[in-house]
């Protein structure tokens, strides 16, 4: 039991190295319309300096990136530009930050910085969970059967 808890904590928090990529400057043009970002999924590497050009194609939209306190707002015809350095690895959602209609709360895109370790940790934990389930029952053979 303790072994499994220990292992799961290990899987959760063990510092895993991110594959090292040479950071580069990126220019990403994101078009926002009701209620989507195009592209909706962006893949970059840790350490990249990312310049986002937010272009709104219908009404005023915003771009707010989880975990980075990076925000842009763009009117149609007025491209908003901002730069941040991708210091944190993982998957981060970005959301529209200017109310733009009914589906505004769900106007979401995702930015993947490096490898999504959490997903792999999750898969490893899943295998561990199954193993733990099997072991826990073998130890205590079916009492109620």
């Amino acid at each position: 039991m303790l072994l499994f808890i220990g292992m799961s904590l290990l899987i959760f928090f063990a510092p895993l190295p991110q594959p090292v990529q040479i950071p580069k400057d990126r220019l990403i043009r994101i078009e926002a319309s009701s209620f989507q970002f195009i592209p909706g999924e962006i893949q970059i590497n840790p350490g990249d300096r990312v310049t986002v050009e937010l272009v709104s194609t219908d009404v005023v939209h915003g771009f707010s990136l989880d975990g980075y306190s990076f925000e842009l707002k763009a009117d149609p015809g007025q491209t908003a530009t901002g730069t941040f350095t991708a210091g944190k690895a993982g998957v981060f959602r970005f959301r529209c930050s200017v109310a733009c209609g009914n589906l505004h709360p769900f106007m979401i895109g995702k930015l993947q910085v490096g490898v999504n370790l959490l997903l792999f940790r999750g898969i490893a934990l899943g295998l561990l969970a199954i193993a733990a389930a099997l072991v826990s029952l073998r130890k205590a053979p079916r009492r109620r059967m």
């Binding site: 707010s64 975990g67 959602r93 959490l118």
Partner: peptide, 20 residues
Amino acid sequence: VGEATSFSLNLQVAILMVGL
């Protein structure tokens, strides 16, 4: 605007694993 924190992401993984 609200944002998803890494705590909430980890918690989601943990909850899913408890389910499995």
